[in-house]
Design a protein around this nucleic acid. Structure first.
Lengths: 212, 212
DNA sequence: TTGACAACATACCCGGTAGTATGTTCACCA
DNA sequence: TGGTGAACATACTACCGGGTATGTTGTCAA
């Protein structure tokens, strides 16, 4: 099926809003970002945004979902990779960490979404939407949890409590989101280098053996 | 010198405000917390708060500084502990992690303060105040940085880049701040157990040898 | 070609919030 | 014992920001 001109324009317009909104939410946070801020940066007005999103919370949820879709898609090809779980974890962790830097904008929005959920903000109506997204996001972290648990069973990882260790590991992998700032003229290799060091730290933290 | 009744009342009143404000800022974040919220929970009105703090930003800065003072004080006795740096790090890391749980309220406020600084919020006037607090906080993380660097020189820790590794480690130690929730009837032992696992993860991550 | 509708822009409303101006009470001191 | 100032409370203002109601313009289908 082919789309009409109108439908193309609308689809592009919507995703443009998502991108710009993601930037604003990341830079100033949810509360400090006004709809007018987003509109201004779009070179448009409120009307355009409210045409596609019924409320500010829905706009935020849209960015949240978009970000989750992206990171899920990035990880998907390696989810059921054959071979030892420890090797699979290494692949997943690397992809994840690189995403924290390359898609820092979306990553921070997702992060704030989780925090908002923990705080119990927004109305009960929008809470349902957020709850669904949180489950979505938990499904993502479960991938790591299960992989790590399996690797421990296979004798490649060694640690005590699974829940606590997963949290510590995830925060280590997520850390670039908070301090990484892209430098002009930076190559993929630079980013990969950083990611490798983060992954190496987490790998040792999980009780994995040094690579030969 | 002895203080008059008035001075006692004033001092207590001020610190009461700081505690309650810390709770509010933690639960809802800076922007979502109104001065009236804090006043309501105090069983008072705006007037009382504005009598001690010239603005909302100053109130926040007050909580920030108070939180930093506390954590600095907790760590101070072990700062210059004799013996190998790796052992000193273990002590410091443990204290720090326990604080992340026991003083989660203050810890989260400090965390948001750092994020606010990175975003460059507030007026230039209040930015100066915040800058000072950030340097204060950097002085704290430098303690860990130097200890780790020394432990590496002493051959107890093994990792590649110091800056990256310090960030990953710090996030791992800070992680309880985000997911830990005090359970009713929880003992110090429970908290220490969690902290020990976090520290163990970070310790392995830094390339430390398993304890015998 | 016309009417319906999408895709916005404009103009407006209103609740909430930081900050202020002005009481009011009471301790302490001369 | 009266005056002064600290420690608040009360009442008010100004503004910002989410949301809405109402245009306006172009597209497409019949």
């Amino acid at each position: 099926m082919t789309l009409s001109v109108r439908e193309h324009v609308a689809d592009d317009s919507r995703s443009d809003i998502l991108f710009v909104a993601a930037e604003c939410f990341m830079e100033r946070g949810y509360n400090a970002t006004s709809i007018d801020d987003v509109a201004r940066r779009l070179g448009a007005t409120k009307g355009r945004i409210y045409h596609y999103f019924p409320s500010k919370a829905d706009l935020f949820a849209g960015v949240f979902r978009f970000g989750m879709d992206r990171i899920f898609a990035a990880v998907e090809p390696y989810r059921n990779m054959p071979g030892p779980a420890a090797e699979r974890w290494k692949k997943l962790a690397f992809i994840h960490t690189v995403r924290m830097m390359k898609s820092k904008t979306l990553a921070k929005v997702v992060w704030e979404g989780v925090e908002m959920h923990l705080r119990g903000a927004t109305t009960p109506q929008q809470r349902i939407e957020l709850d669904g997204l949180i489950r979505y996001r938990n499904g993502y972290s479960d991938i790591f949890r299960e992989t790590i648990a399996q690797a421990r069973e296979e004798g490649d990882f060694h640690f005590a409590d699974l829940g606590i260790t997963v949290q510590a590991m995830f925060m280590a992998l997520n850390s670039p989101m908070f301090w990484y700032v892209p430098r002009p003229g930076e190559t993929d290799e630079d980013i990969h280098n950083i990611a490798n060091q983060i992954v190496a730290f987490a790998h040792r933290g999980l009780g994995g053996k040094e690579e030969t």
